[in-house]
Amino acid sequence: MTTAVPLPAQRPLVLADVLGRSRTRDLALVVTAALFTAALAQIAIPVPGSPVPITGQTLAVVLTAAALGPHRGLAGQALYLVLGAIGLPFYSEASGGFEVISGATGGYIVGFLPAAYLIGLAAKHQLDRALWKALPLFVAGQAIIFAVGVPWLAVTAHLSAGEAIAAGFTPFIVGGLIKAAVAGAALPGLWKLTKRG
């Protein structure tokens, strides 16, 4: 007679895996990521001389991407983009509509997609579980957003490269580092709370 040997529980790859997997739960997580990004978009501080405000969106992107992983994180940001583009007041200062996407700030929102996927992929490889790994990950994730957003700003606002950097990147460096530090502290802390990290 053979005895069944129980398989060891699979170690969660990203924070959301602690909750288990089901299509309903995944859908709820994706919707929550979109709504969380929309909520943090309403934290908006105008930047003098720039059409781009300082917002909480990038913090939402890095947190949800790391927590959900590449596919659910990307889906959450894609849902956010689509819901705002069809006119829901999801973008900064309760704006919405395709004109936002096609305008000066649209590139940053589009940049959420590759950033979410790549941050989620890195988190799947456990780069979000210690501050010293998470901090550079979240700085790099925001850099991806700027890599899409700044050239988009230059084209749509008819700015030179230098002007676009001055208006769409330089004023956001300190805030981006603060957001990376907040996320870099939060994710490892949440992993410790689950006692599964």
Rank of each mutant, 00 (worst) to 15 (best):
L113W: 02
L68R: 02
T156H: 08
Q57I: 09
I165G: 04
A78G: 14
A41K: 01
V139P: 00
G97M: 09
P151T: 04
V150A: 08
L159P: 05
L137Y: 07
R129G: 09
P51C: 09
L79M: 14
A115M: 10
T58H: 05
H125Y: 14
V150N: 03
T55Y: 02
G56P: 04
H125N: 12
E93M: 14
T105V: 13
A41W: 01
H158L: 10
A161N: 09
G106E: 08
A157G: 13
L153I: 07
G162N: 02
V155C: 04
G96K: 04
G56I: 15
Y80N: 06
V82N: 04
Q77E: 14
E93A: 15
Q142A: 06
A130P: 03
A67N: 05
G97V: 01
L40Y: 03
I144F: 05
W132M: 10
G73H: 05
A154R: 03
T58N: 13
G49C: 08
A154N: 01
A123H: 06
Y91T: 08
F112I: 12
S50G: 11
F146V: 09
L127F: 15
G149C: 06
S95A: 13
S50P: 10
H158C: 06
A143C: 14
V47K: 15
K133S: 14
L135Q: 00
A94K: 12
A39E: 03
T55R: 05
A143V: 15
V155P: 06
I86Y: 12
H71P: 00
F98L: 15
V148K: 02
L131D: 01
V62Q: 12
S95N: 14
L121V: 03
L159M: 14
Y108N: 02
I101G: 02
V82A: 12
A143P: 07
Y80S: 06
L79T: 12
R72L: 15
V100E: 09
A161V: 00
V139F: 06
A67T: 08
A44M: 00
K124M: 08
G162C: 00
P53W: 11
L63F: 07
K133T: 05
V61A: 09
G141T: 05
L118S: 02
Q57N: 05
V150G: 02
A60Q: 00
G73R: 07
V139C: 03
L153Y: 12
L113E: 10
L135E: 01
Q142K: 11
A85V: 10
P151M: 02
G49S: 09
T64D: 01
Q77G: 08
W152T: 06
V100G: 08
L83G: 03
I101T: 04
L153M: 12
L118V: 11
L121Q: 10
H71E: 10
Y91E: 07
S50V: 13
G103D: 10
I109M: 00
Y91V: 06
G120W: 01
A164N: 04
S95R: 15
P89A: 04
G76D: 06
Q42I: 10
G69C: 05
Y117H: 08
A39I: 09
L83Y: 07
H158K: 15
P151I: 02
T105Y: 09
L40W: 04
A116I: 06
D128L: 03
A123E: 04
A115K: 10
A75T: 06
L79F: 13
